[in-house]
Write a protein that binds this DNA or RNA. Structure first.
Lengths: 194, 194, 194, 194
DNA sequence: GCGTAATCGAGACGGTACGTCCCGTCTTAGA
DNA sequence: TCTAAGACGGGACGTACCGTCTCGATTACGC
């Protein structure tokens, strides 16, 4: 880990951008695991130290790059119909998980399993802000009586988003827009026979 | 990858067991990522070649070890009450995910994100057999009218197990028996206000 | 190498002194090889650029520092007895070579083996002026008939001083006042049996 | 430094030879200081670890290479005339010091100034065996009355060889066959006027 | 005493090399 | 004949310094 002082006053923005771009490009071409910090530095025309000065690990670089340039926006639609809004947003996520670029995201989450620092930054940078957006939207829906009043919203979020992550990370089946329909159907109407 | 012929006729069972034990022990002590094949071989008192002869990677060793000695059994209880049986089994899973030993499982799933071969073996050895047990139990429940007739069972399985994996792999909150209650409540009764 | 104009008019004497002191101090504490320019700059409370502005290399800094503050004076005693004067001066050198501080001198000569610029500055700053003093003294001695008339003085200087450097740089034996006696005895009387 | 066990039983002689050759070649081409261990490994078609397994440093590799393939033999001629034998052997040394290949030797001695381990290996491998040969020859000469009976032989060796090293390492003048004549003349006949 | 220009401390930068770790394969000697 | 031990070629790691550069801030000179 770096022992640098890293005063952001002196940060070179050109290099910063070049590193994020190079990291994403190399991961797209050969995967996160086969992308070395050396290679990112070389591709970005940057010294390796410059990477270690500003990020604690390769994974941290990619979390930032994914957050800025790859992952779906944390903004949540609001048309008044929570079911429709959830469907729209989840379909975006499902399509992102299906797309080639999501494999970097997948690998970064993989790396987080062995490195608490990476897990933190994944959670805080990639997951939390997007959960936040969803929670706000659900809060309003609950106020408007579109969902049960007695639920804990984070439980709801997990219930409907977790199946997408499950497929992404366990690779059981691809995530599809149809899956989103199924999830929302089951989640809203329940499993109990009527 | 090994190019050995690996005739199981010559397989030394003492070494086989020693390798699985050593692998689990070292992962418990220092994590999967910091456990090298060299170290497993040394700990098991075995040549490195012996490991590569029978498994394609460190992860594959641990998949087998976890399946045999660590993960919850694929057998599913059947008391006639599907909700109670699900709860019982899911609580076992939740407790396993909370326990220290699950971190090896977690890291192996992490490693699978960057290695399709590992992903395959995780899916086939660890996930599928346990999903199978659950699917059989749900099938009977559906026949008995305890859950809706129109659901696809794998979708149901994902709906209720995915939140446990979500917490395990994203680290949002610990998995607890209480979470199991919440999940089953939401999943069976639905989010829609009555 | 610096491309600065480095007009000495603007030279900050406080910094100049601080750099020489810091360099010597760090070399004393941890050796020349482990002393980095960064460390000298930090120790001296000076920017790195300030060092590179006035010296072409770390070695050059230390040559100046040694010349000013560490090495024996280039002045040569003259009592009329050349043998006694040589002995006195050589004993000073021998003692200096034995002292801890000489290890910086030793390492600088070592660095000069790989860098012609350093070799030049060592020769011109540290060696030549001291050889000069010795040559003048020998010249007078020869005029007074205290040594053979047909010798080339630089050959004599090498003959008697080289053994001290030999021990210093090859580390065969420590340089001692006794060694000085032996050298002068052999050099003046010759090896041939009488 | 290596923590390997380095059991010579398993040493690959082809690699051993390739490393020594590559090291000498690169030092000849670009100097010892600019020759990196990486470069030697690449040139030799060898992993870097294989170098660190058998030698503690780049300098140690070159000491062995120089001893085997570059430096004058430790064998000392014996024609019965010690002065002639010394002259012959010293001329070989003087010529070696003048030749381009000696610059590697020079730089290795330079590196030894900053690293006691290298100093040891230079002394034991390169210097001592050659001094030994000379001492034996001088011993015989003394027995035969060709040199004074009261001298310590190592002092004599230093007296006559040190000037060659002095010129080599301080770079005052090139070492030449003529210098050898001068040294022997001064050393045998002494500085005192007759 | 004022404006300009060079120096100053600080430290980021593109690079090179370091010495270590581990990979997966190959070799050796001995049971 | 198979195994443990471990050497091998190779690649990546994270660190230490190199010598240059870019910042504002300070300092010293000539007008």
């Amino acid at each position: 880990m770096s022992t640098e002082s890293a005063n952001p006053r002196y940060r070179n923005e050109r290099s910063h951008k070049a590193i994020l771009d190079a990291a994403l490009k190399l991961c797209r071409e050969q995967g996160f695991a086969k992308t070395s910090v050396d290679a990112i530095a070389k591709e970005a025309g940057v010294g390796k130290q410059t990477i270690y000065r500003w990020w604690p690990s390769k994974a941290a670089v990619l979390v930032e790059a994914i957050d800025r340039q790859s992952a779906p926006s944390p903004d949540f639609p609001d048309t008044g119909d929570v079911l429709a809004d959830l469907r729209d947003q989840m379909v975006i996520v499902a399509r992102y998980f299906q797309a080639a670029q999501s494999s970097t995201y997948r690998e970064v989450i993989g790396a987080a399993q062995s490195d608490p620092a990476t897990a933190q930054v994944v959670l805080n940078t990639l997951v939390r802000p997007r959960v936040e957006g969803c929670r706000n939207r659900l809060e309003q829906a609950r106020r408007q009586g579109q969902i049960r009043a007695d639920v804990v919203l984070d439980d709801v979020i997990e219930l409907i988003y977790a199946p997408l992550y499950y497929r992404l990370l366990l690779g059981t089946r691809p995530t599809t827009p149809e899956q989103v329909e199924v999830i929302l159907n089951l989640a809203f109407d329940g499993l109990r026979p009527r």
